[in-house]
């Protein structure tokens, strides 16, 4: 164990997946999305994935379902749906902290 409590593995907070905290899940209609990136700016968890300057699916490993993206979307293409509507049995494995 490294001494003094220092963490020698940089960026390892990525291993602590918080997606299981959700009660509501954002469902984005990417066809209507205008890629204004306001959801990306406002997401407190950096859970909006971006590729080639366009947003793609929300990273469900980290999205906590706060709904800010749905709130800010100017074209309202994001809908918050109940998590229980989806497959609850999807197991999210966590590395021990």
């Amino acid at each position: 164990m490294p001494i003094g409590g220092i963490i020698i593995e940089p960026g390892n907070s990525k291993n602590y997946k918080t997606g299981s905290w959700r009660t509501f899940r954002p469902i984005t209609d990417l066809k209507r999305c205008i890629h204004c990136m306001q959801c990306w700016v406002i997401c407190p968890d950096d859970a909006i994935a971006v590729k080639n300057n366009k947003r793609i699916e929300t990273d469900l490993d980290f999205c906590k379902g706060c709904g800010l993206c749905a709130e800010i979307c100017p074209v309202k293409c994001i809908e918050m749906k109940k998590e229980s509507e989806f497959n609850c049995n999807k197991k999210i494995k966590n590395k021990k902290m």
């Binding site: 299981s20 905290w21 959700r22 229980s84 197991k91 966590n94």
Partner: peptide
């Protein structure tokens, strides 16, 4: 109390 917790090892 939180349903998702049953999946936490």
């Amino acid at each position: 109390i939180d349903t998702g917790l049953i999946y936490e090892p």
